[in-house]
Design a protein around this nucleic acid. Structure first.
Lengths: 149, 149
DNA sequence: GCATCTGAGTTCGGAAGTTGAACCTAGTGG
DNA sequence: CCACTAGGTTCAACTTCCGAACTCAGATGC
């Protein structure tokens, strides 16, 4: 009896050690193999593999580029689906900032391009109410999803 | 040169295959070993190990319980830090609902306990502006964090 | 033409993690 | 005192991960 769940399905795609770190770099504008490898620390073989599966999953796309004086190579960009993982990364970062940051404070800050204010991942309902981060005002409704194994 | 990042630090703790699924179950109120194992499908040895590291990380706490006619056993509950991972789970679930759900729609719905409206993980700035999920209005400011390796 | 550089990727053998199945254990009820 | 149960532990096979060394192809210097 294993539960059908969108969390599980999403983790099948981005739930390994390096996938989300790779996405973080691409979000930050790092698009090429070597720089991504340096920033994440992933071994080459693993990075090759992860980029391939992110492309296969439609989260990342490839595009040719040519640095003057070099041959054509590939760079990696987020697709629309990939960009929609931003709230996941933001929520992870926010938790780490709060619970794991050193005394120097968070290494990276996210600001609203429009007004410059600090951006947070929040839970909000469709009537516009803001919920506490700890999920205390949350009510989960199971619609279906216990699967005979 | 590996980047210092709260995403990476958070993933060191909850970034393995089963950790977030275990947390999802505990969020849903499943608190005991056997039911968690059935719902997630994790092998026993792995589940034992994950629960231990979640406890060690201060995300999950243990508490005695005693079912009538049984000896004392342990159940697992979220700590405050653990509950604050709710936005991460919600964001993962939301992405899966949008990109991986079957024709039946999402298996689980989250509602605001107060008003019953659907709850979403969103990006919002401290001035109260709601940002698009795809991070398009986001500006990342690196404060420090390139670490010589 | 030939050697060399570079970014991207492959190959390799050893280390680490994951798996399902079988076994262990301490109370409890019959 | 025997069987049952929830929660682990152990085990051997298997898979994945790792870092280091190697390959590949096109660009450039000589």
């Amino acid at each position: 009896m294993s539960r059908i769940c969108s969390v599980a399905r999403t983790l099948d795609i981005v739930g390994e050690r390096w996938s989300l770190l790779v996405l973080r770099e691409i979000f930050l504008g790092v698009r090429r193999f070597e720089p991504i490898r340096e920033a994440t620390g992933a071994p080459r073989a693993v990075l090759t593999d992860r980029l391939r599966s992110l492309v296969a999953a439609g989260i990342v796309g490839q595009r040719d580029y040519r640095e003057p004086g070099s041959r054509v190579r590939q760079e990696y960009r987020l697709t629309d689906a990939g960009r929609e993982l931003q709230p996941v990364l933001t929520a992870l970062m926010q938790w780490g900032d709060r619970h794991l940051a050193g005394p120097e404070g968070p290494p990276l800050e996210l600001r609203h391009a429009g007004c410059g204010a600090h951006v947070r991942a929040t839970l909000a309902c469709e009537h516009g109410h803001l919920l506490p981060d700890n999920g205390s005002e949350l009510h989960a409704v199971q619609r279906y999803g216990d699967r005979a194994t």
